[in-house]
Amino acid sequence: MDFFKFFSREDVSSKDIAKERLRLILVHDRASVSPKFLEMIKSRLIDMISDYMEIDEDGLEVKLTRMDMEKDVAVPALVANIPIKKVKHLARI
C-alpha cells in the first residue's frame, strides 16, 4: 500500500486509516508471533497436494506478504511456492 498516497486522500477519515493499518499489522503479528502457524499450514498443504502430485517438500516455501488489490487497497496474502516433482496419473485419483 502506498501510505503517502493514502494519507493525502482527504476523503478517508483517520479512523479508517487506523483500522486498515491495524488489520494489516495484526495479520502479520498473529502469523509471525506463532512460529507454528506457517509450519502448520505447510504440513496441511503437503498432505492435501500429495494426493494429486509429488512435491519437493524441502523446497516448499510458504510466506506472508501483502498484495495490492487496486490503487489504495492492499490485503495480506499468503504466498506458497511448491516445486512439483511429478503429477500423478489422473486415472488413479
Partner: peptide, 13 residues
C-alpha cells in the same frame, strides 16, 4: 468526526 476508532471497530478486530 471519524478521527477515533469506535467500539465496534475494536471489538471486531
Amino acid at each position: 468526526r471519524g478521527d477515533m476508532m469506535d467500539i465496534d471497530d475494536m471489538i471486531d478486530i
